[in-house]
């Protein structure tokens, strides 16, 4: 090979790669609006993106898997935590995690109410970007699902059988609705939401207690009500609710089909 041929090799490689890359870039731009729901990109969401940048969130967290690797990935956070929870969390993160236990803590970002609502809107928009189904299984913030719990269980929608309990269990572990991202079924393991171990037994006690103001007459009714209207009965604890509103998302009544809610209730009722 001569120097001239070497140069020709360099020029051809560079031109071919650069042309292909630029061509694919043009095509990607054609597809971005559909993949990212650009029509839903409101001024509030764009302001939320500015809050995200101004607060330097990316140098601890990751979003779409990109960032600082020091704090949890937030790609699907709004599908795992409702707005009331995230609002309360952003107002004072130290209430929700113990620095002694986890050895790291989020500093208070000192955001205004408007900024909090904007950044949550931004994160919700990001959570709905079509990104090839990443992450392959939910990345949860804290808690354990190891010994004796649900390790190794299917994590996506699967039609395991026609048995409503089995279907409910599969749904519980799938994302969405990602029930398992906030609720453990192991006794004493409270994540963002309280443990559901012994739920049916507790439900029976709650509906007969004077604090209960709902309409449920049976454990099954109570469980159904907790899924569809989480604020009817508030489990005690500052990290579960504020201002008489539960931190649990209240979208399940509309986002889940009645059949799915039935199977979830059937499954949760077995947790005695």
């Amino acid at each position: 090979m001569t120097k001239r041929q070497g140069r020709l090799f360099f020029i051809i490689c560079t031109l071919v790669s650069a042309t292909a890359f630029i061509g694919l870039t043009f095509d990607s731009h054609r597809r971005f609006p559909g993949l990212t729901n650009e029509d839903k990109l409101t001024p509030e969401i764009i302001r939320g993106k500015d809050v995200w940048h101004n607060s330097n969130c990316i140098n601890c967290h990751t979003l779409l898997g990109e960032g600082g690797y020091y704090a949890p990935d937030l790609t699907k956070i709004t599908q795992q935590r409702g707005t009331p929870y995230l609002t309360a969390f952003l107002k004072d993160p130290s209430q929700f995690y113990s620095e002694e236990k986890h050895r790291r803590l989020m500093p208070n970002p000192k955001l205004s109410d408007a900024e909090i609502s904007e950044v949550i809107a931004f994160l919700d928009w990001v959570g709905h970007i079509d990104n090839q189904g990443w992450p392959p299984r939910p990345i949860i913030v804290s808690g354990t699902t190891i010994p004796g719990t649900d390790v190794g269980q299917p994590s996506t929608h699967t039609s395991v059988s026609t048995d409503p309990v089995a279907q409910g269990e599969a749904l519980f572990r799938s994302s969405p609705p990602a029930c398992g991202a906030c609720h453990s079924i192991a006794p004493g393991v409270n994540l963002a939401g309280p443990t559901l171990a012994g739920l049916a037994t507790r439900a029976a006690a709650i509906i007969t207690s004077p604090e209960y103001k709902g309409e449920a007459k049976t454990s099954a009714d109570y469980i159904r009500e907790s899924i569809t209207h989480p604020s009817v009965y508030l489990v005690p604890g500052a990290t579960y609710s504020a201002n008489n509103q539960s931190f649990m998302p209240d979208n399940f009544a509309t986002d889940l089909e009645p059949r799915q809610i039935d199977s979830l209730v059937a499954y949760l009722e077995t947790l005695k």
């Binding site: 020029i11 051809i12 490689c13 292909a20 990607s28 898997g65």
Partner: peptide, 20 residues
Amino acid sequence: GLVFMAGILGTAHHYYWVGV
């Protein structure tokens, strides 16, 4: 030449999961 041949289109490994 080799660096550019692999590196330019190799940018794609950062794109997998970001909405492309």
